[in-house]
Design a protein around this nucleic acid. Structure first.
Lengths: 125, 125
DNA sequence: CTAGGATCTGACATCAGTGTCAGGGGAAAC
DNA sequence: GTTTCCCCTGACACTGATGTCAGATCCTAG
């Protein structure tokens, strides 16, 4: 498929796909006229890349990890493996932080809710 | 205390504190010479602002929410209350996404680990 | 064959929080 | 009082993923 189709199927912009390729996250075969062509495999790959971006990884970090993802059967480098563990741990900490923050919001919401019930006339201002 | 002390006690840069004030997230009393002065309360406030930033809220959103935080005893506006619930829900979804992503990484790590054990000689390359 | 949509490259814009520098004044320690 | 550190404002830089535009080329439907 060409880039437009991959973009719509993976739910990202054409611009982003070109950027991913430039950053070494994605490869494409080129037709003689220079147009990029992809296989269905790339759909999942792009989706995964997006998830890593959403998880706060930089394109550089993702580039470091992807070899480990693509060919877990080969002996991937220790460095990539370590990096992956490191990111996993970072993610765990981040999730814990976010959970704490959400709990704080819940506490505030509860306090506000309680107040609203006792003073319904004040609601809205 | 002056801005430098607040910065070091709250663990943020002086630059950031001035920015927060500019965005309406923080207020300070000014000495006659124009220097900002803060009370101990601001330490916690700044820490909370940081947590919200880390949770992906924009300064605009934080500004919308803070009245609700500072004076839960007053009848805070419905809009702020709704906004807060909305952000809480967004955070919940984000946490779920991150957890999924982390699980994916765990799966990949396990696959790599398994391979490493079967082919110890290939480690490092 | 041709028109219109898709793609190519390259460049510049955006956003938001933060870093950093310059030039001038304040505060506190010696 | 002088030195040294802190603070003030204002401005510009940065980062990184993405948007957008321009001008050229390609592909496909009519």
């Amino acid at each position: 498929m060409r880039i437009g189709e991959l973009a719509s199927r993976a739910g990202v912009s054409v611009r982003s796909l070109r950027y991913y390729e430039q950053q070494g996250l994605l490869t494409s075969t080129r037709s003689t006229s220079g147009q990029r062509h992809y296989t269905d495999n790339e759909i999942e790959r792009v989706a995964f890349i997006q998830r890593l971006f959403d998880a706060g990884l930089s394109s550089r970090t993702i580039a470091d990890l992807l070899p480990c993802v693509e060919s877990p059967s080969e002996g991937t480098s220790d460095a990539a493996f370590e990096r992956m563990q490191q990111e996993r741990d970072r993610l765990t900490r981040h999730i814990a932080d976010l959970t704490d923050t959400r709990d704080s919001l819940d506490g505030l919401l509860a306090a506000n809710r309680a107040h609203r019930e006792t003073l319904p006339a004040a609601a809205g201002r």
